[in-house]
Nucleic acid binder design. Structure first.
Lengths: 361, 361
DNA sequence: GCCCGAAGCTAATGCGCATTAGTCGAGGGA
DNA sequence: TCCCTCGACTAATGCGCATTAGCTTCGGGC
């Protein structure tokens, strides 16, 4: 049998024991010197110097595996996104979040482990143990709305440090960070109202994700402020559209204008369907924005429309969201519990909103 | 003294010992069962099943640090980029490469650890030991030209499996994979030449990175094929520009045209500066592409110009590059050494090149 | 002269796992 | 009956490091 088995790496990398031998001290002393002697044990300066010299001479570098084993934590944070592969496109909305995650993790001295639905171990989407692999890390961030509840619940129940990116109230005990869509959406409506708009319609997708309901909530809240509680309950103030949004036609837009609507607000979704449809319908109807009507987008435009005129609306601080998630996770790791879960979105003036045309009563 | 053992246990993360207790066997047996029992020790099928069940119930996942310490491998591949892997500036993104890495790693049963080198304000920016963290993984991929040589050299000297993405000849013994810029650039020139162009200028950055010199090499090689070796040495065939490329002005372009140049080739760089400048100068000069002159890009256009007409040139198969890097790394891990380091780039016809205008010879 | 405490070390232990030597009982052959 | 093998496990050990509980000296204080 080859005595060293699979380790082809081992070739002469010195251990503390060898440094110790060269310096004429014990391994403990080497560890003490190189580890900064945080426990304040008395060490003679000469000894320190000898150890340092020996370490340098041998080119000693600590083995991170051993270090982490002894420290009982491996300084790894997991990032789990339940998409088939890791979000491929740079334009994908997860990407900017990862930017923030990476920066904050680096700043805190953690490395990242990436998990996806397609991670190894045969852990495909259906596998009831797919989420367990994240336990390899000290804690994990979860992205996306389709993370399986039961598995996540078990992790949380076991006391595994986890943070979900995106509001996730229904899962008891799961920490999360999310953008403050309620406040941001309300703010957009207030601005429109400030410009003189009195009838505003929200175009949202037919999906009851928190991101959608929060926006509607904020929308209706602000509506109530200037038009009273009745307006907030008005069913016609909100339109649910399907994907693709075939129902948003030029005719539909014109009908709404005829009813006195002067502004449309769309929610941002992964596909950008609502905004895209609204945009197309308005253009096809030959209407001018913002002269004939105002538009606002509750979020950022899809990448392919980014070059067009910037929509009035708000920006989701995705990088900041990622950073906040990391902070919350590391707070959990060090015992502290609660950090602020909501991240504010900045209002974006844009140029798709203006005063309503004339007095159309 | 605060009990630390139990407090850690409570924080999730079951050990083999706990699985053993639940299954009513020894830790050794658990290790045997979960490790695939490569030593062929007799194990009763019932025992095996009980252990597996217990492990699943507890959500056991092996600790990579311990695994690596004991067995010298843990099925983790590192990815180290000395700039952020997810950069804020999207135009110079390693992301597509990472996608290929991710997929191939998953296919081979490895998890990925992202070692973030320096980050703005990062804890360990400039730390001379920053690279040692990668030793936690079985092997590591390196991205970017700014990986500190000395540290990398030490890793390689220790026999640590490493693969650099991007040509890296000067560091003896370091394996690498890279795009075949030489062949791809030559091909582009051949196409232009086939269209009738006889005088072509390469606009490159003033940076002697392999990616730049390879392109120039390919460019000159192809030049020699149709215009003889003298042309290949012609200093005026290649222009080095600075960043920003202030020297590429409309006037400069017109002067070149007056000299008989009919096509310009730009190299792709992180910033896309050369291409951007060329584009802008041609537009400002009121020249039409490809009627008045042809343009080609040795690579892909920056993201913000992606929506414009596709440039004639070649595509760097970034995902494939990542996959190839993983293959080379795992080959190293299993003892085989050499895999093909060069990945071919596909020619992209685009629409910025056409026949030269008239006979201006 | 004896005890005490500080200075300056080192032996021993354990982190979680893989691996190597056993151990133990149930047959089987002689 | 005794020994030996074989099947099915377990005790013990070590990976490289950090940490903790000891050891020695040596110099005062009384």
């Amino acid at each position: 049998m080859a005595e060293k088995g699979p380790s082809r790496q081992r070739r002469g990398r010195p251990r503390q024991a060898e440094v110790a031998r060269l310096a004429g001290v014990s391994q403990t002393t080497v560890s003490l010197v190189l580890g900064g002697n945080k426990q304040g044990i008395a060490l003679h300066e000469d000894t320190r110097a000898r150890v340092l010299a020996a370490a340098r001479e041998l080119g000693y570098v600590p083995d991170p595996a051993a270090r982490r084993l002894a420290a009982a934590r491996n300084n790894l944070l997991g990032v789990f996104s339940f998409t088939a592969t890791f979000p491929t496109a740079v334009e994908h909305s997860y990407y900017p979040i990862l930017v923030g995650v990476e920066q904050e993790a680096a700043a805190q001295g953690y490395d990242l482990v990436l998990f996806t639905g397609s991670s190894p171990g045969g852990a495909q989407a259906g596998d009831p143990g797919a989420l367990n692999r994240v336990r390899l890390a000290d804690g994990c961030l979860f992205l996306g709305r389709h993370v399986p509840d039961d598995q996540l619940r078990k992790l949380v129940a076991d006391g595994y440090p986890a943070v979900h990116i995106g509001r996730r109230d229904e899962l008891e005990g799961l920490a999360w960070v999310g953008a403050d869509y309620v406040a941001a959406s309300a703010e957009v409506v207030r601005r429109l109202s400030g410009l003189g708009h009195r009838r505003i319609v929200l175009v949202r997708e037919d999906d009851d994700a928190p991101a959608s309901t929060d926006r509607e909530h904020g929308f209706r809240t602000a509506l109530a402020e200037y038009a009273g509680p009745r307006a907030a309950d008005d069913p016609s103030a909100v339109v649910r559209t399907t994907h693709p949004a075939d129902d948003i036609t030029p005719g539909w837009v014109r009908d709404r204008l005829a009813e006195g609507v002067t502004a449309f607000v769309a929610e941002e979704t992964d596909s950008g369907a609502a905004w895209r449809a609204l945009h197309a319908a308005v253009a096809a109807a030959g209407l001018d924005v913002p002269d004939d009507l105002s538009l606002a987008l509750l979020g950022s435009p899809p990448a392919d429309l980014a070059a067009a005129r910037p929509p009035t609306g708000f920006d989701i601080p995705r990088a900041e969201l990622g950073a906040a998630a990391v902070r919350m996770l590391t707070a959990q790791l060090s015992g502290e519990e609660h950090t602020e879960p909501l991240v504010a979105c900045g209002f974006r003036a844009g140029s798709t909103a203006g005063p309503p045309p004339g007095r159309t009563g």
